[in-house]
């Protein structure tokens, strides 16, 4: 199979879906500019032009409400935020309307399948309000689907699913994943929400991860293999619905659970995964659950603070070693996937 980068896979999914369905349009600030949202909207703009790839005013609230109304009128909006932090300005239409529309009007009047892509993640010095990942915020609300694809194939498949489904969707894309390559099917086939995948098989520790942390977990697993520890990496792919079964089957096998996330632990993705295990298979755990997440502060800017703030493969290695009763510190430090980032932002 041919390989594509993560951004190319998103672009391809977008173009294929827009070619197949004239009701799909893109709306976002600067989606038509020369950079084309990290390249992901460039081909769509070249092919479909400004009537379907629409630069909108700096009005996240109204634009999301506009998308709800367009969807009610039969359109399929794809909203894009190049900094997901701005999605907090769109919370009301997405949470109070899109998520609830079908239900609160009785279930039989149709939904409003608004798809929102939010770009997250550290570049350099993005700081407190330009690098947050709001996946848990949106995943809290019934009526939405929320996914954070880690691979190019999943980035394509989940976007195709979103643009052909009936449910409003929030897709979180870590910007550090855009250059990663992987095999991607040529056809536009959807990947169902709520179905995780085993990114790496193993028997001693389960690492449940999402988005960028899947790659950090795989790198950690490679190093831990040298210490004789076999790590199973579960990529949940979607946070809502969450694939409880794949998580529990893995933990039932390994008896040990590390959850790795790019956001905070409290009330977040890692809390939810721990709760799923505690509710379903409490007897399976042979050691306490470990959560690898952001420290309880906003994101800092200064380089060394930023390095200390973001979790990565090294932290996963350490957590797994401790769960297996081994002392950390004897392995060479791993650079994070994001460490290769080049400026200027």
């Amino acid at each position: 199979m041919r390989t594509l980068t993560y951004w190319q896979a998103i672009s391809e999914a977008t173009v294929q879906c827009m070619a197949a369905d004239e009701s799909i349009f893109i709306a976002g600030e600067g989606v038509d500019d020369i950079k084309g949202t990290f390249g992901t909207t460039k081909e769509a703009f070249a092919r479909f032009g400004p009537n379907r790839v629409i630069d909108v005013p700096n009005s996240e609230n109204a634009t999301a409400g506009f998308a709800v109304g367009a969807a009610a009128g039969g359109m399929r909006p794809l909203l894009i935020h190049t900094r997901a932090d701005f999605m907090f300005l769109a919370l009301d239409p997405l949470v109070n309307l899109a998520a609830k529309w079908r239900y609160m009007y009785g279930g039989d009047k149709g939904g409003v399948p608004v798809v929102t892509r939010g770009v997250v993640g550290r570049g350099w010095g993005q700081g407190a309000t330009h690098s947050q990942s709001p996946h848990a915020t949106f995943a809290h609300y019934a009526g939405l689907h929320v996914a954070a694809p880690a691979s190019p194939a999943d980035a394509k498949g989940l976007l195709v699913q979103a643009l052909t489904g009936d449910t409003p969707v929030v897709l979180v894309e870590n910007r550090n994943l855009y250059p990663l390559t992987g095999e991607v099917p040529a056809e536009a086939s959807g990947i169902p929400f709520g179905v995780g995948r085993i990114a790496r098989r193993g028997g001693d520790v389960t690492v449940v991860a999402t988005s960028l942390m899947v790659h950090e977990a795989e790198r950690a697993a490679g190093q831990l293999a040298e210490r004789g520890i076999s790590v199973e990496v579960v990529d949940v792919r979607s946070l809502r619905p969450l694939d409880d079964r794949i998580i529990c089957e893995s933990v039932a096998k390994t008896g040990r659970l590390v959850v790795a996330d790019t956001s905070w632990a409290r009330y977040g993705f890692s809390a939810e995964v721990a709760a799923v295990v505690a509710e379903n298979i409490p007897e399976a755990l042979t050691a306490p659950v470990r959560r690898l997440a952001l420290p309880d502060s906003p994101a800092p800017v200064s380089w060394p603070l930023e390095e200390a703030f973001h979790p990565g493969a090294g932290g996963i290695v350490e957590a797994c070693l401790r769960l297996c009763g081994q002392a950390p510190g004897e392995l060479p430090a791993l650079a994070d996937v994001a460490a290769g980032f080049q400026g200027p932002y």
Partner: peptide
């Protein structure tokens, strides 16, 4: 949260102002 699509009553909602942009989006789609 009333609705009657057959009559063209497309929905009511309770958060102040939230159906204002919704109507803009529907109008644009029309």
């Amino acid at each position: 949260h009333l609705i009657d699509r057959a009559a063209g009553f497309a929905g009511s909602a309770a958060i102040l102002g939230e159906m204002i942009p919704v109507a803009v989006g529907t109008a644009w789609a029309f």
